[in-house]
């Protein structure tokens, strides 16, 4: 190997002035402090790197919608709607919602794991916008949601789903889903802040999500349910989301359904986002 000498006098030569550590450190203007968006995106990138290193995380994101779509369409579709083709038109928007809403709990699980490992204490010592580790984790999960939406839609199209709302309707529905998912994720982030273990976060999340998703209009028209259950389905935020998603995909959306979803999303962010940040600041 040959070492090439750079042009100009070397620091050790008598003609060059001696450089101190202070000179090196103060050589240029101080870089600007990173903004909230750039720090949040850095943490989002960190979340994506986790998926790259542990791709098994995507098992639920891909297998869950495939299994549920096939099972309900082919096993129960005929008995529920007369034919599998008729049922897939009703079911698929609901399955999209169920899949995405179910995987929002992983946000809480990953944050809880970070807290347990102590890496969050390190993040809090950095000169960055305080909520960025949380917001970044939520941004990173949006990629998982997009993968799940894509898998569900492709499978749906293969087995006969035909959205009457066209490409724009499907994209609008996906956007609505992503917005709602981002907002509901704050609930699991809040639980991650005060529950001690990953299992506890998962248990509480499932305890809330299971009745919310199944006691809704995802699988069947609530008209066929008992009165007391219909009353719950009507006020269930998941039902509002399913109705809006279904409407956008089939080109029959109503403003009040959209308004309900926006209302619930704002409520989740304002209430649970605020509580989460309170808990986060308390930890330091």
């Amino acid at each position: 190997m040959t070492a090439t000498k750079s042009a100009g006098a070397s620091p050790s030569s008598p003609s060059a002035p001696a450089l101190t550590v202070a000179d090196v450190l103060q050589s240029g203007p101080r870089p600007p402090a990173p903004g909230p968006l750039s720090t949040s995106l850095s943490f989002a990138w960190r979340a994506l790197l986790k998926i790259k290193h542990v791709p098994e995380q995507l098992f639920d994101v891909t297998m869950f919608p495939i299994m549920f779509t096939l099972m309900f369409t082919y096993l129960f579709g005929g008995a529920l709607a007369g034919s599998t083709n008729a049922y897939i038109q009703y079911l698929l928007p609901g399955i999209l919602v169920q899949t995405i809403v179910m995987i929002t709990m992983y946000t809480g699980l990953t944050i809880n794991k970070d807290i347990e490992k102590g890496v969050f204490d390190r993040f809090r010592s950095l000169p960055i916008w305080r909520p960025s580790p949380l917001v970044g984790a939520l941004f990173g999960d949006v990629v998982r949601y997009i993968i799940a939406i894509t898998v569900s839609l492709v499978l749906g199209l293969i087995i006969g789903f035909r959205p009457q709302g066209g490409v724009l309707g499907v994209l609008a529905a996906a956007g609505l889903l992503l917005m709602f998912s981002f907002s509901i994720s704050w609930i699991w982030t809040m639980f991650a802040m005060f529950l001690r273990t990953e299992q506890a976060v998962m248990g509480v999340s499932m305890f809330i999500l299971f009745p919310l998703t199944f006691a809704s209009n995802i699988f069947v028209d609530p008209v066929t349910m008992p009165g007391w259950l219909q009353a719950f389905v009507k006020v269930n935020p998941i039902s509002h989301l399913v109705t809006a998603t279904r409407g956008l995909m089939q080109g029959t959306t109503e403003i009040r359904d959209m308004a309900a979803v926006f209302g619930w999303s704002a409520f989740f962010v304002l209430v649970f986002g605020t509580v989460t940040m309170r808990l986060y600041n308390k930890k330091s």
Binding site: F76, A79, A81, G82, F219, V220, T224, M225, P226, L229
Partner: peptide, 17 residues
Amino acid sequence: IVILLMFVYVFGGAMNV
């Protein structure tokens, strides 16, 4: 029991049996 409750109350009314 959870599956029973789900099938009876959520899907039961829509099933053609």
